[in-house]
């Protein structure tokens, strides 16, 4: 099996049609960075760092280092300091929340942790069904209510049941709706408040799931979810295509939210803790 770096790189190479840049060419580097959804500002900063520094001969290394320096600040894995450890997953529709939760549940189960999944997406048709299948795969319990019921009460049920039964981890799957939807944001704020009744420190993680195939709007999403909820982490999904998720650079620079995991495939093992070194090497 190919390593993660190789897989991420092969995607990028496909988009570049195999062209390798050897001599430093700012225009080509700019294109490469833009194609990876870097913002223009970040792109210019990286190019400048090469033009100003002594890195022209070894420009690839300089660029990687610049990106690494930014990403290093957000390379912070989840710290499980409490039981039950309560995690809320939020994000827009189609970002990959349920799949991410499913993969994580499986990994926790393998590591010998007990897990409860809360089907708090009571809005999308069959969202609960999708989570149920993941629960079965990973031998996790699931707490659910009929479609249309109050998501906060589903979350509350799951947390109190976890506390009563001594379960290690609670993962709450929330409805995927656009960040511009005020009802959703209010619903999530309420959920957070209700969870606090179980444990004043909870939710211990509020994680935003970001689709790497999306562009600049992901920064706006992160900003708005962060303002409303105070995010503790990010999971970047769908890195198995040609998209590189360069937007994390902007998120790291502007919002400094830790990147917890990256997702890069359909299989349960295709979710790994974020590694800044690996990631910056794959980008350039």
């Amino acid at each position: 099996m190919k390593s993660l770096i190789e897989r991420l790189k092969s995607g990028l190479l496909k988009t570049r049609a195999g062209i390798e840049i050897e001599k430093f060419d700012p225009d080509l580097l700019e294109e490469r960075l833009l194609a990876a959804d870097f913002g223009l500002q970040a792109t210019e900063q990286i190019i400048e760092s090469i033009e100003k520094g002594r890195g022209r001969e070894n420009w690839k290394e300089t660029a990687r280092q610049t990106i690494y320096d930014i990403l290093k600040t957000v390379e912070k894995p989840i710290r499980y300091y409490k039981s039950p450890f309560i995690m809320m997953f939020v994000g827009i529709n189609g970002g990959g929340k349920t799949t991410t939760i499913g993969k994580l549940a499986y990994q926790y189960n393998q590591a010998g942790k007990s897990v409860i999944l809360a089907a708090a997406d009571t809005y999308r048709a069959a969202a609960t069904g999708q989570l149920e299948i993941w629960a079965k795969r990973s031998d996790a319990k699931i707490v659910k209510q009929p479609e249309g019921s109050d998501p906060a009460s589903v979350a509350f049920d799951a947390c109190s049941s976890a506390k009563a039964k001594g379960v290690d981890i609670v993962m709450i799957d929330t409805a995927g709706r656009l960040h511009t939807n005020d009802n959703l944001i209010r619903q999530l704020i309420k959920m957070k408040r209700v969870i606090k009744k179980i444990d004043q420190d909870a939710p211990h993680e509020i994680i935003l799931v970001i689709d790497s195939t999306l562009g600049r709007n992901s920064l706006v999403q992160a900003e708005q979810f962060n303002n409303a909820l105070g995010l503790t982490g990010i999971v970047l999904t769908k890195l198995d295509g040609s998209s590189k998720g360069g937007i994390v650079i902007d998120i790291a620079k502007e919002l400094k939210i830790p990147v917890r995991y990256i997702g890069f495939g359909e299989k349960v093992e295709d979710l790994k803790p974020f590694d800044a070194r690996e990631f910056s090497s794959a980008l350039i």
Binding site: L34, A35, T213, G215, S242
Partner: peptide, 12 residues
């Protein structure tokens, strides 16, 4: 396609 799609939507 998602209206929020990024750069790679061209090649996709």
């Amino acid at each position: 396609a998602d209206s929020m799609a990024g750069q790679q939507i061209l090649s996709v």
